[in-house]
Design a protein around this nucleic acid. Structure first.
Lengths: 257, 257
DNA sequence: GTGGCGAGCTAACCTATGTCGATACGAGGC
DNA sequence: GCCTCGTATCGACATAGGTTAGCTCGCCAC
């Protein structure tokens, strides 16, 4: 089965067949922040038009180039990242289905980091004109996007705490809790588990660890009965314990609540 | 000499006596981004009214509370930080003279981190009404503040790279380069040196290291002839080498340039 | 089928950094 | 001038995590 088919199957599961909720992930996400009118939703639906499948490990915005338009992820995992001249990579943020990134690209000059896919992704590019019109005509949507941005900033702060103060197992648990919570919000998680279409090397570059140590830590969490990661699917076997280990509290993902 | 007198003396040195440039640090900072009209500058000057001296290690905004107004630092070092339940502290960002923080406090609900002084600081609190009026009446200032915010976000990304991928010596060098560059922009650095009114423990909590290791690293940098930190003043003895070690490039501090 | 390749996994060894405990030093309070 | 307390500093030791080098397995191309 090809990547493309994989993705289509996954989407089918998420958006329609088993799930009565047919809202797009972007709308689901924003409706966690604000109440959207029918027009708001219609306007948002239109952003998905022209979405395209993108191969894994493909840049969506290159470091150092002008940011032209915003990127909307509809399926798959993407990330912001930076490369050091040594070749090291640090992942700065995950872009999950429903995430609309670089809303204020227009202000921006050159990108100070890159954006790229981790897995195969379904993404739509939104021109700055489209975005400007949307923000002007649907103030509620504009407000929701601002709140989403605040959540992104709060997440960056959590990551700083993660990298600066937590042990490997704690860091990893925290990341898993965060991803699970965010995916739940867009209907892509159930039963304390979700798809995690990324490699251990990606995890390493997220957590500031070596891939060997990511592996070790994963085994440790598994043997403690906390977390299982097999194939590309993640399951938190003992959510309360994982949360406690990570000192995870989801409040930062819901600003102004 | 008391703290208060120390600060007053420092301010005198910076703003007037030896320096022909009498602009406030906020105006200096923003003028690096945009051209300010006379009215813009007058409006900004008024923000400093009612500034007060605050003791070191005093919270300006507490974690978990509603953010009421914005905080403008006129002198001294403050920071954003978070405490873990273990007691560990992670410093998330430095607030230097000229920094106006939480411009969009109004959107915010509860703070997800705290803001506090590191040294004695001269700070002004700006109510959200004052801020709203300013942003509405001086669009150029509003634009400059948005750019400053972008720089803050870019800085957070750099810090993630720092904590995630760099060694102790590299991290510390990077931080020093950043602080020097930012202080230069507001006229508080000269000759590759500046005041650094913080303890090694503060540095440790910034860099995700133990204070013992901060000390060791400092010695190493000193013995290599790169950096000297004595008393509360920092000197980069060999700026090119320090920059190279840190892979520091100041571009991220000047978005849209 | 075979070969190649990326990802996961393991083991052995190494080192950067943390921890603990003691000492030294400098500034402010009395 | 002495005491105290927060810092800075130092040495000895412990350990989390890095590095290197394999080996395996599943998937895809040919």
């Amino acid at each position: 089965m090809s990547h493309v088919q994989n993705i289509k199957a996954a989407s089918a599961v998420c958006y329609g067949r088993h799930e009565p909720d047919t809202r797009s992930p972007l709308i689901r996400k924003l409706e966690a922040f604000v109440f959207l009118s029918r027009q708001d939703r219609t306007a948002l639906e239109q952003l998905s038009a022209g979405a395209r499948l993108v191969e894994p490990r493909t840049d969506l915005q290159r470091d150092g180039e002008m940011a032209t338009d915003a990127v909307l992820v509809l399926d798959g995992f993407a990330c912001r990242y930076k490369h050091r001249v040594t070749g090291d990579r640090q992942i700065l943020a995950y872009l999950l289905p429903g995430d609309l990134c670089d809303v204020d690209a227009p202000h921006l000059g050159r990108m100070d980091h890159a954006v790229g896919t981790l897995s195969t992704c379904l993404v739509a590019r939104i021109s700055r004109e489209t975005l400007a019109t949307l923000m002007a005509q649907q103030p509620t949507v504009a407000r929701a996007l601002r709140l989403a941005k605040l959540a992104e900033e709060a997440t960056a702060r959590e990551w700083l705490v993660n990298l600066g103060t937590r042990s490997a197992a704690e860091r990893m648990s925290h990341l898993f809790c965060e991803l699970l919570t965010r995916l739940e919000a867009v209907g892509l998680a159930e039963d304390d588990g979700c798809k995690l279409p990324i490699t251990q090397l990606d995890l390493a570059d997220t957590l500031g660890l070596s891939s060997v140590h990511v592996n070790r830590t994963l085994q440790e969490l598994r043997s403690r009965g906390l977390v299982e990661l097999r194939g590309r699917s993640l399951k938190l076997r003992d959510l309360p314990s994982v949360r406690a280990l990570a000192e995870f509290s989801p409040a930062y993902l819901r600003p102004a609540h």
